[in-house]
Simulated assay, not measured.
Amino acid sequence: MTVLNIGWIGCGRHATQMLMPQLGRNNINIAAVCDVNEKAAASAAWQYGAEAVYTDFRDLIAHKGIDAIGMAVGPDLHETASLVALEHGLPVFLEKPPAKDRPGAERIALASEKAGKPVLLGFMKRYSTGNRIAGNMLASGDFGDVLGISGSYMTAPTYFEGEADYTGFYLHHCVHYMDLIPWLAGADLADLAVRKREPKPGHLLFHLNFECQNGVIGTIVMGTVQSRGTPMEHIQIMGDHIRLEVDNIINVACYRNPPFKADDPAACLLEKADTLSWEPNFTAAANEDHKGYSALMADVAAAFRGEKTNAPDIVDGVRAMANLERMIALL
């Protein structure tokens, strides 16, 4: 398999601990790194064997021999740097959000189309093990029509630094479900309604009720009133006499329509009726990434090579940003 040389922008903890470790596993060599904090960039270069260190993203993009650009920085720089990379004819991977607003994402989409180069996005929730299993079951056709979806995705008020501005929470947290829920439902969000509680500044809880374009209904619960040290996610997908539940992105159960067994002396478990469940085996000596970054970057690498993949792209990013802005307008 051809080794790709990537130039990476943004060498913070998320990039160096979550994203960059997945690149080598997918035959992507980190050739150059960039960060306004030169010490952070130098540390990342040492960890991943990059040959060059930059503090200006334009210099990195101009680095000789680069095949693609990856970045995990702020939404403003995501837009600016990706536009420059596309002008140089380079495909791009962006951590979410793609930009600070929908028009910014649309500008990237237009530039991607003009350059004929993909822009892939870090919507790894699609790749989290439990969500991916659920998505594959829905796509198989055995589940039948999705009737409703409910999801809870909480966090703590850690996006604020002494100021209750929810922008970071919306852009870095809520945007995930603006992508994930339409992906599971098989259609974009249509009608939206919101109810909220805010016991004090920075502490927000809201319920987003929705109907998708294909008739799927549901509720998303999000907020900043839970500890990040506890499980924060639960998804239930409802069908006709069947439902899927994904707990904390890793525990999956499929409930069907089993017979009552208490009065049946010959009762047994029926493959077509009884509950199927799966839990990860954390005792196995395996390098598994249940959050989804490894599987995401495998699809990103394939897309960089011109192969057809299911990696979320800038079109998905435009949709997610549009949904996010509609939701924010109701809060």
Rank of each mutant, 00 (worst) to 15 (best):
Q213M: 05
E245W: 04
A85R: 11
L4E: 07
Y153E: 11
L94Q: 10
N131P: 06
M232D: 11
H78C: 09
N27L: 10
A320Q: 06
G49P: 02
S152C: 14
A44E: 01
V36L: 14
N214R: 02
A40C: 10
K291N: 03
A298Y: 00
A185N: 05
G49H: 04
V3Q: 07
M18K: 14
E198S: 11
T230G: 08
F282M: 09
P91M: 06
R228V: 13
A190R: 14
I328T: 09
I6T: 01
P231W: 05
T55I: 13
K64I: 06
C254M: 14
I235S: 01
E163R: 15
Y255W: 13
L23H: 04
I181Q: 02
P21D: 03
S227K: 15
H207T: 08
E163I: 14
S152L: 14
A139D: 08
N287I: 04
C11R: 00
L19V: 04
H78T: 08
A52F: 08
F210L: 07
P259L: 12
G215D: 05
A190L: 12
M154D: 09
V3A: 04
G74Q: 06
A52Y: 07
R132A: 02
T219Y: 03
P103I: 12
K114P: 00
P75E: 07
N29P: 00
L138V: 06
K39A: 15
Y177H: 11
I217M: 10
G148W: 10
D316L: 08
T283G: 14
M327S: 07
E51Q: 13
E51Y: 04
G74E: 06
Y166W: 10
P312K: 03
A50W: 00
L171S: 02
E245P: 01
L270C: 07
A284F: 06
L331K: 13
E279I: 10
A44F: 03
N257H: 15
V246W: 03
T2I: 11
T167N: 11
K114V: 03
A50N: 01
M327Q: 07
L296M: 11
M321P: 00
A134F: 09
K125M: 10
G229W: 02
A62Y: 02
G215V: 07
G122S: 05
L86I: 06
Y48N: 00
A187G: 07
V318E: 08
M321V: 02
N251G: 01
R102Y: 06
K272Y: 11
A111S: 13
P157A: 05
D299W: 01
L270P: 01
M238R: 14
P75D: 07
A284M: 09
R256L: 01
I108K: 01
H88T: 00
P182R: 05
M232P: 01
I242D: 04
H207E: 08
V53H: 00
L120W: 09
N251E: 01
M297H: 12
E233T: 15
L138Y: 13
Y54R: 09
A185V: 05
V221K: 02
L324P: 00
A31D: 01
